[in-house]
């Protein structure tokens, strides 16, 4: 069994970062422009950041964190919750942002 705890924490952080920088970018034009300046478009930058954070953290945390196989389900459900929650938050945010 691989280090499920490290994998889950990595996915939670990467999805969380993508969601967070998306929300910050909508409130701060300079921040969004900065993201766009890093590549060619803010979407590309967010995508690359999300994937790189997941891959690098998975490797680093895989060595740093001791596996906690007894609680694997808890970590996987946490990833599920963060991913689903992020999707809902993004939808609600853009809905409110467009209507208000």
């Amino acid at each position: 069994m691989k280090n499920i705890k490290a994998l889950s924490i990595s996915s939670i952080i990467s999805i969380g970062i993508v969601t967070l920088i998306t929300l910050i970018g909508e409130f701060s034009a300079p921040f969004k422009n900065g993201l766009a300046a890093l590549t060619s478009h803010h979407w590309v930058t967010k995508s690359i950041i999300g994937m790189i954070v997941f891959v690098i953290l998975s490797i680093i945390l895989g060595y740093m964190i001791k596996p906690d196989n007894e609680n694997s389900a808890k970590y996987i459900w946490s990833t599920f919750g963060v991913a689903l929650g992020s999707a809902v938050v993004l939808f609600l945010f853009f809905t409110i942002h467009a209507l208000v």
Binding site: L7, S8, S14, V18, T22, M51, F54, T79, S86, H97
Partner: peptide, 17 residues
């Protein structure tokens, strides 16, 4: 579209996970 394009970013991450 704003919702779609941003949720889309983390689907490949979930798939790799």
């Amino acid at each position: 579209m704003e919702t779609k394009e941003h949720i889309f970013i983390f689907i490949p991450i979930l798939a790799l996970f």
